[in-house]
Amino acid sequence: MSEFRDAFRTAISLLVNFDGDLMAIVGLSLLVSLSAVFLAAMVGLPLGAAVAACRFPGRQAVRVLLNALLGIPPVVIGLIVYLLLSRAGPLGALGLLFTPTAMIIAQWLLVTPIIAALTQQTVSDLHDEYAEQLRSLGVGSLRAIPTLLWEGRLSLLIAVMAGFGRAIAEVGAVIIVGGNINHVTRVMTTTIALETSKGNLALALALGMILLLLALAVNAAALVARDIVNRLYG
C-alpha cells in the first residue's frame, strides 16, 4: 500500500512544482487527443446521423461496420496506421511516422466509430420523434441532419466525451505509431508504460492520477459548456 501513498505524494509534488517535462507531456496528450476527437466528431457526428436519418444503399452495411469497428483493439489500429505511414508503406513519403500527426490519425480512427455509433443511436431515437414534423415543415433528410444533431446535443456531448476518454487513455496505438520518443511523441499513457517498465511504480501511478485529473478537468469543462449552451438555447 505504500506505493499509493508514495504515488499520491509524487503526483502532488509534480503538480505543485509545475514540472516542465510533465507539462509538455500533458500538453501533447491534450493536443493529440483533443485534435483526434475534434476530427472524429466532424466525421462521426454527421456519419452517425446520416445512418440514422437517411435511407441509402449500403446503410445496413455501414451500421454493421460501425458496430464492428467499436470492438477493434487499439493495437490493431496502431499497426494498420504504422504500416500505412511506414517508409515502406503507401503513405511513407509523407514522413508522418513517429510524429504527433500519426498519433492523431490513429486516435481519430479509433474514436470515429465510437462517436458515430453512439450518434446513430441517439439520432435514431430523435428521428423517430421528429421525422413527421420535420417533413411537414419541408425538411429533407439531408437538411434534417444538422437539426437532429443540434436537438441531440446533450446526449451527443456524452458521446464525444466517451470518445475523448478512449483517446486520452489509449496506449497501444500511440506507442506504435508515435514511438514514445522523448519530447516528441511521449504522452501521458506512454510515459506511464515506460515508467512502469522501469519499475518506477509510484511515479507511474502518480502519472495515472494526473491523467485521471486531466480527464476529470476536460469532462467538467464539457459539462459547464453544456450548461451554458443549455441556458442560452433551452
Binding site: 501533447l28 493536443l31 485534435s35 476530427l39 466532424m42 466525421v43 510524429t99 504527433p100 500527426t101 492523431i104
Partner: peptide, 21 residues
C-alpha cells in the same frame, strides 16, 4: 463540414511540421 475538415487537416499538417518538438 467538409471545408472545416480540410482546414483542420491543413492545420494539423502545419502542426506536425512545426510541432511541439
Amino acid at each position: 463540414f467538409l471545408r472545416l475538415i480540410i482546414c483542420l487537416i491543413v492545420t494539423l499538417l502545419f502542426l506536425h511540421a512545426n510541432g511541439p518538438a
